[in-house]
Every structure is written in C-alpha cells, then in structure tokens.
Computed example of a mutant assay.
Amino acid sequence: MKAPKIPAKKATRKTRPPKRDVPCPKQNAGAATPSSPSAKPRHAPCVRPLALRHAVCIARAVTRLSVFPQLRFVPLLAAGLLAACAPRPGAESAPAGNASTPPTSARNVTFAVENGYVPFNFIRTDTRDAEGWDYDVAAELGRRLGFTPVFREIAWDSMIQGIATGQFDLAGNGITITDERARVVDFSDGYMTVNQRLLVRRDETRFTSLATFAASAAARVGAQKGNTNYTKAEKLVGPARVVAFDSFGELIQALLNRDLDAVLIDDVGGQGYVGTHREKLKLLEGGLPGQDLGFIFPKNSPLRPEINLALAAMRADGTLARINGKWFAPNFIPAGAPAH
C-alpha cells in the first residue's frame, strides 16, 4: 500500500521584520518623565552625518550589483545612485528659511535729487557726470547699509510731493526741516545747520548786510519757489519785493543779468555759486537764524532709522566732517560746476 503523498511545502519568502525607529541616545539619556518638574525639552532628532549618508548609499549600490550580477554591465547605475545621494552644492550649509531672502546688498534705494543745486548735486559741464555732496553721502550710506543708491532727477517743486506719494525712497537736496513739511513726509536727524544769507554781485555797494538791504525800498530779492528761503524773504522785505523762480540756476542768471538785486540762499549753497563766479558774486556778512537740513522719506519708512544710525556713525568717526569739508569749504571751487 502506497503511502499517501504529502504535499510539499511551498517555499515561502522570508520577510524582514518591520523597521523600528532607533531612539536618539541624547534624547533618552537621563530623560525625566513629563510630569517631572526637572523635565528637559526633547532633544532634536539625530541626523546622519553627511559622510555616513554617502557610505550608506555606496553600500546599497554595491549590494545591488552583487545580488544581481546581470547589472554589472551597467556601471553607470552605481554612479547614478551616488549622484542621487550627493547633496546640491551649498544646500548642506544653507540656513533654513533664508533661500528666498535676497542679500541686503541687493537692495536698490531710489534717491531723488534736483541736479541743479551746487554743491549738493549738479551735472558737470565738462564730463556730464553727476556730482556733489548728496552723491558722496549717498554712496557712503549705501556702503554702510548695504544698498545701491539709484538717483532720480526731479524738479524741486515736485520733490516733496514725490516723496510723500512714495515715488522715491528718500530725497536729499539740502531740505530744511520744518513742521509744515513734517506733516506730509518724515525727516532724518539733521545732518547740517545752515544760515540764510544774501548773495549779491561783487560790485554791489548799496547795501552790505541784511539790515541795509531791507532798508533799501527799491531793492528786489529772488528766491526759489516752495523753498524756506522764499518764506524768509517775504518776512524780511515783504511779498512785493520778492521774485520767485523755479530753480537756483535761473536765480543766479537773473542776478548776473541785473534783473535782481540779491538772492536769499543757504550759506553752503551760496558758497558753491561764489566758487564758480568768484569774480562776479559774493555773500554779504550776517545771516538769518540757523536751520537744520535733513533727508526726507515717505511716512513711516523703515529706511529712516537705518539712515539715522548711519549718519550718527559717520558723524562720530569723522566721515561726515570730511565730506562736508570737501564740498562746503569757504574757498572751494567745484570743478565743472555749471555757471548758473
């Protein structure tokens, strides 16, 4: 009698036990229970070092090639696996969350200037390059704060409105700090104090001071529209004797042509024009009470506190005095400055 056939057992594939997370030794070593008052915050999960991750990738690639000999003719497979394991250049050390944040030096800051107010800003007649105090100070501010100043030329009578409406980030141009202007724009800390003086022709002998000019009933004074000089001139001699012009260049030309008897101007600006017309113009002695000049910004601009800190540092280390000495020296003659 034949013994009954016992069905052969089917070969079963061994399955690996499920992977278990290996606890971080730093996380569990000496850890207190959650209810313990001395409980410490959990340690960050351990991360395989970069070299170990590369070693694991290499081991896996070699294992696959030994188990499946038919793949040995594809040596590029291993290279591909290794390439997949390699991190992108710079990715290992890049801080999280900063990938989309541009560096500070990439900022462009629009800087409004008139390009017609010697020596603050002007276009040289010989090279056609823009120069002046505003350009030197803006370059230094950009170097310290990591931005690139981008200059935009605009007429004076539109400058404050352009800043107030956010067309520019800030403006220079030697703007006097006043309460009226501070209602529509924000000012930086004052970077300079100036006096307002009378600029006259060098051959002028009818008056020698503000007082004697005011007493000369027929004498007319010119001032720029929208400027504090215009307001001061009206208070000095009355509106009937004040003539308004759009730009300082027009004022200087009218004075030289004898269409005006004097121009009321900030002393530093007046020195610049005297430098370019030393044989034709002069400043009378004495001046009106000093006024502070400042940069202007749109209301609540985040750039304002940065500029104030940089100006304070420039004042402390002598940089501001050096730039002032270059452009506002009494006998300074700005090379290439326009005649008017």
Score class of each variant (00 low, 15 high):
9 K>P: 12
11 A>N: 08
11 A>L: 14
20 R>D: 01
25 P>R: 04
26 K>C: 10
28 N>F: 14
50 L>Y: 06
52 L>K: 09
54 H>Y: 09
55 A>Y: 05
60 R>L: 13
66 S>I: 10
68 F>R: 11
73 F>D: 12
76 L>S: 15
81 L>M: 13
86 A>K: 07
107 R>F: 03
110 T>K: 10
117 Y>Q: 06
119 P>M: 00
120 F>E: 02
123 I>K: 05
130 A>F: 05
135 Y>T: 06
137 V>Q: 06
137 V>G: 04
139 A>N: 11
150 V>P: 07
158 S>D: 12
163 I>F: 04
173 N>T: 15
178 T>F: 00
182 A>P: 08
183 R>S: 14
183 R>K: 15
193 T>K: 11
194 V>Y: 04
197 R>D: 07
202 R>C: 05
207 F>P: 09
209 S>P: 12
209 S>R: 12
209 S>F: 13
212 T>E: 15
215 A>Q: 15
219 A>F: 12
232 K>E: 14
233 A>D: 01
236 L>T: 05
238 G>Y: 09
242 V>C: 04
250 E>T: 14
260 L>Q: 01
262 A>T: 01
263 V>S: 03
272 G>V: 03
273 Y>T: 01
277 H>P: 02
292 D>K: 08
293 L>K: 02
294 G>W: 03
297 F>V: 05
297 F>Y: 12
298 P>I: 02
299 K>P: 01
304 R>A: 07
310 A>Q: 08
313 A>N: 13
319 T>W: 08
319 T>A: 13
320 L>R: 03
323 I>A: 08
333 I>Y: 06
338 P>G: 04
